[in-house]
Design a protein around this nucleic acid. Structure first.
Lengths: 229, 229
DNA sequence: CGCCGCTTTATTGGATCCAATACAGGCGAG
DNA sequence: CTCGCCTGTATTGGATCCAATAAAGCGGCG
């Protein structure tokens, strides 16, 4: 059926990719007309996509001369991760203060069990990185959802567009499974610790742990190697 | 000169007002064509504005049948204020950890002096509420700017669109100047306390105070009277 | 020789038109 | 009588065209 994949989304993801992989670098002008011609669509979806990317903070308006990718340096990424930390910390606090419902506890347990299964072997195999990716995302998503505060999800949406700032963007080194085992199992243990704190009703501890969990991503300097080229 | 005030911005602020003051209520459909005709513009700026409002979280897409204002209840506002609290708390922490520059200290001092002048009389007069509005905004803006973390400003931008969630939206009762004096002077004292904590290098205290400062807005239940009609 | 203003031109923002699509209502069959 | 399909229609998304605007280049003047 080769679904045509609507032009609008197509343009949006195309521009995101180009910005992410450096095809368009900060300083380069992004004008509507050339971009539209290059992608084989009209100016309209390009305009829409650029406005969206501006809202996401990925590009900045360059006066009346188009847009340019917003310069993203290590400090910006660190800042975004810090923001994620306090927001997820707040989520953990709120969940704890409201008290876990039986259903939420069950779902957290099921997700954590997935993680347990991944690390039970004592080492990782190829598919496990993908498995961890989904497990990790599920944990964070459930936490945000359980917080009952839509503003947290809204605020986080911004950060998730910056590279490495998203919970989904743990710096995975697909070549060094042994090395990653250390980082990922540590993250998994932190998930358990947060869950335990939430279940025991220690809101301060839950928040602190969750903040530290995000901070661990900052400490993992390997994430920034790509920035150096 | 009666500046024409570009249609796009015009439509955006018009829709924001209509949503804010309840002219358009959650559940009401917002279609492009009727809205465009009602405002006397083409569908294009309406479309742009709706996309922007969707990014801001003020409206939600209603399938293919237009948009509707996102239901905003007391819980949502509380949540947004909590988010503001942790973000501004993070800003205070970062400023403290980095250390106030001489220039920043001077500017904070100048802003706080404005506040001192407002409350020195021991009571408020009409213009003072407007003065406090600007003073308060200046303090919060400077704090965010000084944090050196653009992600904080970005994340806060969302919340500022929700009613009462913005630092600019202290619930001011323009009829009860004596009552407001208590609240506003308390807020002013909190500003001083935050500044002192930042200057003394106590990051934990600065963050805690700033969070509490936002929380005070939650405690001021009068802010929610408008929600009850 | 440098600076100011004008003109030219590139580029965005808006309006109108057209196509794709999804919802709704009615009609028919079981 | 109810469920499912089919057709009609309303509504959004995209393309093209036009106008307003601001940046840049050029020429004249001091």
């Amino acid at each position: 059926m080769e679904k045509p994949a609507k032009p609008g989304q197509q343009v949006l993801v195309a521009l995101r990719r180009m910005i992410a992989d450096g095809t368009i670098q900060p300083g380069d002008r992004i004008a509507e007309i050339p971009t539209a011609e290059a992608l084989g669509v009209s100016r309209m979806p390009v305009r829409t996509a650029l406005r969206a990317l501006e809202h996401e903070g990925l590009v900045v308006k360059l006066g009346a001369r188009g847009y340019t990718p917003s310069a993203v340096d290590a400090a910006a990424i660190t800042g975004a991760i810090e923001v994620r930390g306090v927001l997820e910390g707040l989520a953990a606090r709120r969940v704890t203060e409201r008290g876990l419902t039986a259903d939420e506890a069950t779902r957290f347990g099921a997700i954590l069990a997935e993680g347990d299964a991944l690390f039970a072997k004592g080492h990782l195999v190829d598919g496990d990185l993908d498995g961890f990716y989904r497990y990790n995302l599920a944990f964070h998503d459930l936490l945000i959802a359980a917080s009952g505060n839509p503003s947290i999800a809204l605020a986080l949406a911004r950060n998730n567009h910056l590279p490495f700032a998203s919970a989904a963007a743990l710096a995975l080194d697909w070549e060094d499974l042994e090395g990653e085992y250390v980082h990922l199992s540590a993250a998994h243990r932190e998930h358990h610790a947060v869950f335990d704190a939430m279940r025991s009703g220690d809101a301060d501890k839950a928040e602190r742990l969750m903040r530290g969990h995000a901070g661990a991503a900052v400490a993992n300097r390997k994430a920034f190697r790509m920035l150096a080229g």
